[in-house]
Amino acid sequence: MDRSAQNSGTTEVRNGQGFDVTALEKWLEREVQGFDGPLQVEQFRGGQSNPTYKLITPRRSYVLRRKPPGKLLPGAHAVDREYRVISALQSQDFPVAHAHALCTDETVIGTAFYVMDMVEGRIFWDADLPQVPDAERPLYFDAMNATIAQLHRIDPAAAGLADYGKSGNYFERQIRRWSTQYLEDVEAGRVAAMDRLVEWLPSNIPPGEDEARVIHGDFRCDNMIFHPEAPRVLAVLDWELSTLGHPLADFSYHLMMYRMPAGVTTGLAGLDLAARNIPSEADYVAAYCRRTGRDSIPDLDFYIAFNMFRLAAIVHGIKGRIARGTAASAHADKMAASLEGLADLAWAQAVKAGA
């Protein structure tokens, strides 16, 4: 089964992920303007971290994102931050789903959650966009490029997000955060390449000014809803990892698709890009630089190594949640199985950067 089939659509609420639908319906009647039941709940197949549900009523549908039940690592699954950033970016005409209400009262469904609009459109789970005609594929890549550039041009203060994260030393802080999370998640075990990266990365951060912009943290084609028929991004999803940070960290994470093997998350490596009419990595970087006023991106290999390490740390966390019985996706086992290969690939980027 391909990633699209694995992750698209909804299913019955999975065992251990259910809640009191009647209690939720009463809360929605109080907090969401225009809500009118009866309510039916289904769970989206996709999503590794925060369980996500489709709320269906006779007139319209909504989406609910919640913290997973069970033991959680400190600071993880911050749905309140997701709600805040979506609400703020909406005021800046950035494509996000309209957020209706946040609930931090865990007595309602057992964990904190928020509710937003259900945006109808297409999600592409594979970075080569196999559902798109060859002639149109560059337009979809350009839409992704334009969207992340638009995000990085937003002034955090103008969006009311000046305090959304710390300013300065972004890479140092992120490397320390993910290294600590990796080392403390003892149930997930240790990985040799990750141990090498934990040692190498903090000593090799590129010098220079540390910019601070709103960054998504997981900007990929499968975290975007496209217009049903046009190369236009209607909504960017999954803001759990968003913060203030260096925009090149965010863009290079998105750019990883060019260096990840096809079939692994959203990878393009190994594919004939020209035959698929997909822009080259160099052309994609040049388009982003043009939109954001940059001449180039020095130290790109370091940024890629950092992001692959960060992604491997996230996958390591998924492996830990499997061990603790709190994994949110039915396909978490497959994701966790990719950990060592991903860590090795991250180290290979570090070698390219001079390790």
Rank of each mutant, 00 (worst) to 15 (best):
S91C: 12
A332N: 11
G208R: 05
H152L: 07
A355T: 03
W239Y: 13
E172A: 15
R173A: 11
H246E: 12
A230F: 13
G320P: 07
G70H: 11
D134K: 15
M194S: 00
E187I: 08
G168H: 12
R14M: 15
W239V: 05
G245T: 13
I154A: 04
L345Q: 03
A282Y: 06
A323M: 10
P298C: 13
K67A: 12
V85Q: 04
D250C: 12
D80P: 09
E281P: 00
F19A: 06
S8C: 12
Y140D: 04
L24S: 11
D142W: 05
G341Q: 05
E12Y: 07
S61K: 10
A323P: 00
I215V: 15
A336F: 04
A350H: 01
T57K: 12
R321A: 01
A287D: 08
D195A: 09
V233D: 01
S280L: 02
I304S: 01
R84V: 03
Y303T: 06
W178E: 05
E106K: 13
S167D: 13
S242K: 00
L28I: 09
F219P: 08
S167E: 13
K352R: 15
E211G: 12
L64Y: 07
W125L: 03
T104Y: 02
R81S: 12
T266Y: 08
D272N: 13
L151W: 03
K166W: 10
R220N: 10
L311T: 12
K67H: 01
A143R: 02
R290F: 03
C221L: 15
A249Q: 02
E172Q: 11
D2R: 09
R310T: 08
K166Y: 10
R177P: 05
N7H: 15
M1H: 14
Y83K: 03
P228T: 13
L64T: 06
V79N: 04
E120A: 12
A159E: 10
F171E: 04
G47K: 06
S252K: 02
A76V: 10
M116S: 08
F35G: 06
H100E: 01
R276D: 09
A158W: 01
A78F: 11
P74F: 11
G208I: 04
Y170Q: 01
C289N: 08
G317F: 04
F19E: 06
G263F: 03
F309K: 08
Y303Q: 03
N145I: 08
T147Y: 03
G341S: 15
H98A: 05
R232W: 06
